[in-house]
Design a protein around this nucleic acid. Structure first.
Length: 577
DNA sequence: GCCGTTTTCGGCCCGACTGTTTTCAGTCG
């Protein structure tokens, strides 16, 4: 899939055009194209010219550049642009507070064209004297270089969310605070986030800002204004707080939730209707008459749109869909009836089946599938055939004692390095749910891994393929796999694909899950629970599904257990419990 | 470079904060 490569090229072209002072709207066109190509579910190399032109932000010019890259592996205009600027220059743009204009000045006035040269010059106070740069800017540049060197990588949503909720709760206790909510990429539930955005109303904004910038967690204050402040808390996580009047809360929430691309589309739409949208409200352009803004829905309603859920606000076609009345009715956490991927103490989980059942029941689920690892995964105490069959009796016995809750018996079976399955068919035939997944041979070539997964899906006994890229956010890169080929095989064989809700996995990711949905591939959302608290990460998996435009009907574990078994391929299908 | 219920040419989202400026440019979100 060349999407990512092409997105990187367009992004870099935007950077270069910006530094060289080209038309800012052209820069934006490249940025928008980069985002849309990157988040496109389908591989661009298979698209016709017409299909390319249908991608938002792709016109004749960029479509032909995409085709050029697919055919030749390079874009001539990109190579030409690269030759115009020193190689290290674009790295300067990564320094917070240092933008294209300053970067250009640094090259022209001081001959600085990479990070090391910049740091040296700043330490020796050689930047002062460049127009617009004095001691303070020099100091900020040095701080910014420190930030770049520490790495300002995005963090998994699941790691940041608890802190974010804590901060909102703490600020919410301030007496003058009215409404307060998380916004930004956290509210859109991106899988990773860079900062925490909070929007609030307060009877007195200034004292709240004082309180915010003085929170115990705050390590550094980046910006401190009357209505907007930014601070750094532990691990260098940035937190932005915006305070508005109650009458503007909805407009501010919409504005701060973004994404940037979505906001531009919304405001563009407003302009065409003679309206103006900003963080204070929605106004009639002609006389500045306020039409709304207290509630977020005002913004959409006054533009003639249905409410667009935050998870869709990525400028991936949601504005067009809203205009056409074709927004999906997104799945919700409460739609999930059971968890199909759960480990017990028998393999590498922490709890007994009894404990897992109690935990699932207390969370309102109606069933779970016990899916311990198979024998091949020695490190996880994978089950032998004998232990699996013993467990089978245990599950049957448990089901006799339960009412209103069902334990399905399954396995998370290893797809071995050579592509064979870890249990023979006659064993799989005894199970309700067979998950197949890769736990070895991560470095095999793309074709090999893809073929292993595809072969597993062709088994009539395999119900689900779990975490198909093996990635662990921030810890382990995904292995090489041809996702399009995997999804097509799933489509052909009727095998379900898992959205793994464990916050470091979220695998399928939103892009792949959306593609799966387009292809009509059945999906499941599972927690891969190894400890009881992990049942609570289900919402992260549902968030991926929502970002993938999925509806309840596309996710099999929204069904009751008996209907689920009737729909699920493989194993002991439809046998009554 | 994209795009079209005002347009195929002439537009293209909007505002806060900072640092360096005496009125604003740059950066960010």
């Amino acid at each position: 899939m060349k999407n990512r490569e092409i997105a990187a090229i367009f992004g870099e072209m935007a950077d270069i055009l910006e530094v060289t002072g080209d038309n800012p709207f052209k820069v934006r066109a490249y940025r928008r194209a980069a985002l849309n190509v990157e988040s496109l579910a389908r591989p661009v190399e298979g698209l016709s010219r017409e299909e390319l032109l249908a991608i938002p932000g792709i016109g004749e010019e960029l479509a032909s550049k995409i085709r050029e890259y697919c055919e030749s592996g390079a874009v001539h205009a990109h190579e030409k642009l690269k030759a115009e600027v020193p190689a290290g220059l674009l790295r300067l743009l990564a320094v917070p507070g240092l933008g294209p204009r300053t970067a250009r000045l640094l090259v022209e006035k001081a001959g600085i064209s990479d990070l090391d040269a910049l740091e040296k010059a700043a330490r020796e106070h050689r930047l002062e004297g460049i127009p617009g740069i004095r001691a303070k800017t020099e100091e900020n540049i040095l701080k910014g270089i420190g930030t770049v060197k520490r790495g300002i990588e995005r963090r998994p949503l699941g790691h940041v969310m608890p802190l974010a909720e804590e901060l909102v709760a703490e600020l919410g206790r301030v007496a003058s605070v009215g409404r307060i909510e998380l916004a930004g990429s956290i509210r859109r539930r991106r899988e990773t986030v860079k900062d925490i955005d909070i929007v609030a109303t307060a009877t007195a904004a200034a004292p709240l800002m004082e309180r915010f910038t003085a929170l115990p967690a705050v390590e550094r204050v980046l910006m401190h204004g009357p209505t907007r402040s930014s601070v750094l808390v532990r691990d260098g996580i940035q937190v932005d707080l915006r305070v508005v009047e109650p009458v503007s809360f909805g407009a501010a929430l919409a504005y701060l939730t973004g994404s940037k691309g979505h906001n531009i589309r919304i405001r563009d739409l407003a302009v065409k209707m003679g309206l103006k949208v900003n963080e204070y409200g929605i106004f009639r352009e002609r006389d500045d008459l306020r039409l709304g803004g207290e509630e977020e829905d005002d913004v959409y309603r006054l533009l003639g749109l249905p409410f667009i859920p935050p998870e869709l606000r990525e400028d991936r076609g949601e504005v067009e869909a809203a205009l056409a009345g074709r927004l999906p009715r997104l799945i919700e956490t409460g739609d999930i009836r059971g968890d199909l991927h759960v480990h017990s103490r028998a393999s590498d989980g922490a709890h007994t089946l009894e404990e897992l059942v109690a935990a699932a029941q207390s969370r309102g689920l109606a069933y779970l599938a016990l899916t311990d690892h198979s024998r091949g995964l020695g490190v996880a105490h994978g089950l032998s055939v004998e232990r699996l069959m013993e467990q089978h009796r245990q599950v049957e016995e448990m089901n006799r004692r339960l009412s209103g809750f069902t334990v399905l018996h399954g396995t998370e079976m290893d797809i071995r390095s050579d592509g064979t399955l870890d249990f023979p068919d006659e064993v799989l035939a005894e199970l309700d749910v067979v998950i197949a997944s890769v736990h070895s041979g991560f470095r095999q070539p793309r074709e090999t891994i893809t073929a292993r997964i595809a072969a597993a899906m062709r088994s009539p006994y395999v119900s689900i393929v779990a975490h198909p890229t093996g990635r662990l956010l921030g810890e382990r890169d995904p292995y090489e796999v041809d996702m399009e080929a995997v999804l097509r095989e799933a489509q052909k064989t009727g095998t379900a694909m898992e959205i793994n809700a464990y916050p470091l996995r979220l695998d399928l990711d939103d892009t792949a899950a959306r593609r799966a949905g387009e292809l009509g591939v059945p999906l499941v959302i599972s927690t891969d629970t190894h400890a009881i608290s992990q049942f609570d990460s289900l919402g992260y998996g549902v968030a991926v599904a929502r970002r993938a435009w999925l509806e309840k009907g596309q996710v099999l574990n929204t069904l009751a257990a008996d209907k689920l078994l009737a729909r699920l391929k493989g194993g002991n299908r439809g046998k009554p419990h």
